[in-house]
Amino acid sequence: MSIESLPDFTPSARQRWESIPAHIRQRLLANVWCAHCRTDVTITNFSGNLKRGSLQLAGQCAVCHGDVARVIEAP
Rank of each mutant, 00 (worst) to 15 (best):
C61G: 04
N45A: 05
R70N: 07
P21R: 14
A22V: 14
R25M: 07
D40N: 13
R14H: 08
R38W: 06
H23T: 04
R14V: 03
D67H: 14
C34E: 02
S2E: 06
I72Y: 09
D67S: 12
R38C: 08
A35I: 13
C37P: 07
G53I: 07
A13S: 13
S12W: 00
L6D: 00
L50E: 12
F46L: 00
A69I: 12
L28I: 08
C64A: 05
C37F: 07
G66K: 12
I43V: 09
G48N: 03
A22N: 10
L57S: 06
C64W: 01
V32F: 14
C34D: 03
P75I: 10
Q56E: 14
L55K: 13
I24A: 12
A58L: 01
S54C: 11
R25C: 02
C34M: 05
T39L: 09
L57F: 09
V68K: 08
A35P: 11
A62E: 13
H65C: 11
D8H: 02
V63I: 08
G53T: 10
L57C: 07
M1W: 04
W17H: 09
E4S: 04
A22S: 06
S47L: 03
F9D: 02
A69Q: 15
W33M: 04
R14C: 05
S5T: 01
N31S: 10
T10Y: 11
S54W: 02
I43A: 07
N31V: 00
R25L: 02
S2C: 00
L57W: 09
R27E: 08
A62L: 11
G53R: 11
Q26R: 15
A69K: 14
L29V: 08
W17N: 12
L57T: 10
H23G: 02
R27F: 00
A69T: 15
V71T: 15
P11G: 02
T10R: 11
V68Q: 09
E4H: 05
L29E: 00
A58N: 10
P75F: 03
H36T: 07
E18P: 06
Q26E: 15
F9M: 09
A13I: 12
R52S: 11
R27Y: 03
I3T: 03
N45W: 06
P21L: 06
Q60R: 15
V71I: 13
G59C: 04
D40I: 06
L57V: 04
R52V: 00
N49Q: 15
C64L: 05
L6Q: 02
R38K: 11
I24M: 07
P21I: 02
A69C: 14
C37M: 03
L57G: 01
A22F: 15
A13T: 13
I24N: 03
E4F: 07
V68Y: 13
V63G: 01
